[in-house]
Amino acid sequence: MRAWYPYPLFSIALFLMWLLLNQSMAPGAIVVGVFLSTLLAWVMVKLQPTQSRLRRLGLMAGFALAVAADIIRSNVAVAGIILRARRRPANTGFMTVDVDLENENALALLACILTATPGTAWLEYDRRQKSLLLHVLDIDNEDLWRRTVKRYEAGLKEILQ
């Protein structure tokens, strides 16, 4: 089984994506989906991605909910900042946070989260110093952002290994 499906999660995700794109559960779509997901998983072997194991699915759900809440909150906050930008210019700035993540997948996920959250932009991660350079739209709350990133870091460490 392992030889046929080197990345089971990836294959399942591809298969589901194929069914969603086709919007059908017809036998034809399923056969082509299984074929494609098997074939593309073999192609991935050549790319040699870092493999990580997903642990604790319950934690993942909680983490996703917390992230979604943060994204909604900062959407509203940033919209406010932009609308008020004429009268009261936003106080923006750079900040560095120490992020101790070795895992490439965890780093990629953190980048997605921080970019999807309006108000924080990922600029640079230094692998040796393990420090992340962010640009923040609302530098007055620097401590809050630092704590948020730290919380994400802890969550990602627990989920991905």
């Binding site: 959407n75 940033v78 932009i82 936003a90 750079f94 999807a116 959250t117 309006p118 932009a121 640009h135």
Partner: peptide, 12 residues
């Protein structure tokens, strides 16, 4: 750098 943040509202 400020303008980098603006499109993320649209995308998220």
């Amino acid at each position: 750098y400020d303008r980098l943040h603006a499109p993320t509202i649209a995308t998220s």
